[in-house]
Structure formats: C-alpha cells, structure tokens
C-alpha cells in the first residue's frame, strides 16, 4: 500500500459530493481514514460550488443524482471556477447506465464507480482510475 501511494502521490485531495449523509460519512472514512487521502465532503451541489475554490481538489467524486443538480452538470459547473478547468471527475452511482452516458458526453468524467462499494477498496479503485487517466495524458 505504501509503495502504491508513493506511486500515485499526486492524487491527494478529493472533493466528495453526496447527498446521503450516511454514505457521505462512509465515503469520507473510505478515502480519508482508510485510504489516506485528504477529503472534503459536501451534501449538495450548492455547498460544493461554495467551497470548491478554497479546497482546490485534484479530483471530484460526485453522486450522479443530487437533489439540486445532477452529477454531470455539477462537474461542468465546478470546472468553471478559476484554476479548476482541468480537474477530472469520477461519478459514484447506483445507476451505472446513467453515469456511463454522462461519461460519454463529457471527457473530463474519467471514471464511474458503482454503489454498493467496498469501503476498504474504494480508495484503491479511485487511485486506479486516477493513475490510468494521468498515464493517458503523459
């Protein structure tokens, strides 16, 4: 685990947007406490848009179905903030069919992770998506 973390050390900070409080808490535990990432969690698109410039994350991890905006629209809105135009998005969803369509329409959506997820493997899965994306740009 230590070696792999060093290998992908450029993924450090993740902005998580998930409206379900319990799931949000579990994702934070999976990525932060277990996965060793810096995590900032938001419960709505509105909250995410308000804090994203201060957080300056490396990656957005977004629920697809949020009460105030869908994941794809939120990803686009977040990227309009200064300095975040190239920030990639991963969607976390129980509706992978819907998320794959969003991914097809937006090149900055670099991956889809399904619910339910394995809390002990989520950070590794996210790092794998990040590494593949980073390597594809090299």
């Amino acid at each position: 685990m230590t070696d792999r973390r060093r290998d992908v050390q450029d993924l450090r900070t993740v902005l998580v947007v998930e409206d379900d409080e319990a799931v949000r808490s579990l994702v934070a535990a999976a990525l932060g406490d277990i996965g060793g990432l810096d995590v900032r969690s938001c419960g709505s698109a509105t909250e995410a848009l308000a804090v994203v410039s201060d957080v300056a994350p490396d990656l957005f991890l977004l629920d697809v179905q949020l009460p105030d905006m869908d994941g794809a629209a939120l990803a686009g809105a977040l990227r309009t903030r200064p300095g975040l135009a190239g920030t990639p998005t991963v969607l976390l969803t129980g509706r992978p069919d819907l998320a794959e369509r969003m991914r097809h329409d937006d090149a900055a959506i670099i991956g889809v992770l399904g619910k339910p997820f394995d809390v002990f493997a989520l950070a590794d899965a996210l790092r794998a998506v990040w590494t593949a994306w980073r390597d594809s740009r090299a």
Binding site: A22, V23, S25, L26, A29, G32, D33, I34, V119, F120
Partner: peptide, 15 residues
C-alpha cells in the same frame, strides 16, 4: 479493519 472501525461504525450507525 486495520484500526479504522471507529469511523466505519459511526457511518453504519448513521445509516
């Protein structure tokens, strides 16, 4: 659970 049972348990309780 590698010593991470506290945050995980809190999430499950919340759920």
């Amino acid at each position: 659970h590698g010593g991470h049972s506290g945050p995980v348990r809190r999430s499950v309780t919340l759920f």
